[in-house]
Design a protein around this nucleic acid. Structure first.
Lengths: 138, 138
DNA sequence: GTATCTGCAAAACATTTGCAATTCT
DNA sequence: AGAATTGCAAATGTTTTGCAGATAC
């Protein structure tokens, strides 16, 4: 049985073709796509696929801890099936989002006073090596 | 001369009453308000104030390094006039955003390979001490 | 008097919702 | 049958844009 289908079943979610396609896409494209990107990519193979389903699926995946939401730019929610401890760097020139991994934790004394952490997010904005030298701006 | 007006002049921005009011509000309300919150708060005093002006002003302030944009929830851009090194914690129950300050830097080897960092953002989501005990969810 | 700034109305855009049809179990 | 899922169309909410009038240098 496919590993992706297993994940759905394990979380009590029906492994519909649309849902499997979305998670499969996310697992194989580490590009932090938006819902629209995923929809556009899958539409040819699933002609009746709707944006609604993509959005609903991504929300279900998030609720069940199968993906994380990456928010760097407003109105541009991105998704990532990599649940390991890592942060992101978005190039303000080419728009690409890079992963970077870290092992250390972030000890913040102020957070020890009874705060219960559910998610930790660390990201940078700047220029990637390729864009740093070029003259194009924004 | 007012310190806030000075800041505008120093950056070559006209210190219009609306702009001054926005920055003044941000400097005196460390609650990480949204554009809408600021608009609603200032409207009584500036009856003709428009959302457009609030948005444009906040963008100018950001471009000139007088505020930072805080993005934790999609479609909910918040603003902060505190430009010091600090992160945020948003309570998923009451919605409040807490500041927390840190002194250490975050050394990420992967970022040293020619990435030029412009902004660093660190935030948490979870439950604040007050909401942790209560039974209300989300 | 010329560039900047304001604010109204409309547009743009991502995301959500109502709901009827469909699909699983 | 009954619950979950899909997808269309419409609605929502935030942010942006076109543009005319007002304001400041």
């Amino acid at each position: 049985m496919d590993k992706i289908i297993e994940q759905f079943i394990h979380h009590g979610l029906r492994p519909s073709p649309q849902r499997v396609a979305v998670l499969h896409y996310l697992s194989n494209h580490k590009t932090h796509p938006t819902a629209e990107t995923i929809y556009t990519a899958l539409s040819p193979s699933y002609p009746t696929l709707s944006r609604t389903t993509v959005y609903q699926t991504l929300e279900k995946l998030y609720e069940n801890g199968l993906t994380q939401k990456i928010l760097i730019e407003d109105g541009e929610m991105r998704f990532d099936a990599d649940m390991s401890n890592h942060g992101h760097f978005k190039c303000t020139s080419c728009g690409k989002v890079f992963d970077f991994f870290y092992t250390q934790d972030f000890p913040f004394p102020q957070m020890e006073g009874g705060f219960k952490v559910q998610e930790q997010h660390l990201y940078y904005k700047g220029r990637c090596p390729e864009c740093k030298e070029s003259s194009s701006r924004q």
